[in-house]
Amino acid sequence: MPRFAANLTFLFTEVPFLDRFERAARAGFTAVEFLFPYAWPAAEIKARLDACGLQLVLHNLPAGDWDAGDRGLACHPGRHEAFRASVATGICYAQVLGVSQLNCLAGKAPAGVNEALVHQTLVENLRYCAGEFKAAGLKMLLEPINHFDMPGFVVNHTAQAVAILDELGADNAFVQYDIYHAQRMEGELAATLQRHLARIGHMQLADNPGRHEPGTGEINFAYLFKHLDHIGYSGWIGCEYHPLAQTEAGLGWLQNPR
């Protein structure tokens, strides 16, 4: 059966971030993920993980100035130094927190920049990131994100992400497959998962429409979970959804995921 991790950026949001670890453990989760840890000292987050007996399975590299519209730096010509600094920061946090993989957000295409240059910059930065991660014993993930929720994001489809990874040729680089984003962009979830299983390092879920918990929308999660068992997916699935109500009230699906 798939293993599920609570995404603390999305779940238990009625309490401060550092209090969400205990809530996740009390709800029955044994692992967590989140977008960005950088507003808190790594040692403080590690203490919360250890006190609650939780494993951290994922966080993102710094994505630039989120409030100003940045959604990752990897595709931005002229921001190589900022990107490399973000890689160093991400590695430092990963080594304290004990996580084995980080998501490198590709970013939104900067206005007025040639598409070929954006792609070249993305590949060069991802190659650098994968090399630094390999030296640190980490996996690098690349996530396609739907262009309805995040207009301008440069990686939108699974096949596109796989092609970029093929161009890199790095054996520690994988796709982060988010079921919600994939459903919005391409559908064909079961067939795509089977076709690209060897390239997928991590998964996330939310139902569609609404990006709420499984069972609230059109996706047949019971079928997908059985399918993942059948094709042999052994990684974690991050629960990256907006609960319709309090998080615990919507966890019935987790008690009987199939």
Rank of each mutant, 00 (worst) to 15 (best):
H80N: 15
W40Y: 15
N60G: 09
V96A: 13
Y38M: 08
R84W: 12
A63C: 04
A39W: 02
C52W: 01
F17N: 06
G107S: 08
S100L: 12
V99D: 02
W40S: 13
F17W: 09
F29I: 11
Q55K: 15
A27V: 05
E44Y: 11
T89F: 00
D70A: 09
P62N: 01
I91M: 10
A106E: 04
Y93F: 15
P41N: 10
P41Y: 08
Q95G: 01
Y93P: 00
R79K: 12
P16D: 01
G72P: 00
F36C: 08
N60D: 05
I45P: 06
E33K: 03
W66M: 14
R79Y: 12
D67N: 15
D19F: 12
L54F: 03
A74H: 02
R71Q: 04
A94Y: 03
W66H: 13
F17C: 06
G72Q: 00
A24Q: 11
A82S: 01
R71F: 10
A82M: 05
A74G: 05
G78S: 02
D19C: 06
R26E: 15
V96S: 04
G98C: 05
V96C: 09
V99I: 06
L58I: 09
R48A: 10
S100H: 04
L73Q: 02
L73N: 07
D50M: 13
H76E: 09
N103F: 13
A24N: 11
V87N: 06
G69P: 13
C92N: 03
W40P: 11
A27C: 07
F17Q: 01
A43G: 12
V15T: 15
R20I: 00
D65A: 13
Y38V: 03
L105K: 00
V87Q: 06
I91K: 11
Q95W: 03
F83Q: 00
N103V: 12
A94K: 12
C75D: 11
C75K: 02
A31G: 13
H76L: 09
L54W: 06
A47F: 10
I45Y: 02
T13V: 15
C104V: 15
S100T: 07
A51T: 13
E81Q: 06
L105C: 13
A31C: 12
I91A: 06
L35S: 01
P62F: 02
L105D: 03
A51S: 14
Q95L: 15
C52S: 12
V96W: 10
D65F: 14
V99N: 10
A82T: 02
G69H: 12
A39I: 10
D65M: 05
P41I: 08
G72S: 00
L49M: 08
T13M: 14
C75L: 00
G72M: 01
D70T: 00
A27W: 11
K46Y: 10
V99H: 04
V96G: 09
C92W: 03
G69Q: 11
A63K: 02
L58N: 15
L73R: 08
R79Q: 13
L105Q: 07
R20K: 04
A31Y: 10
I91P: 00
A68S: 14
A47P: 11
I91W: 14
V57C: 13
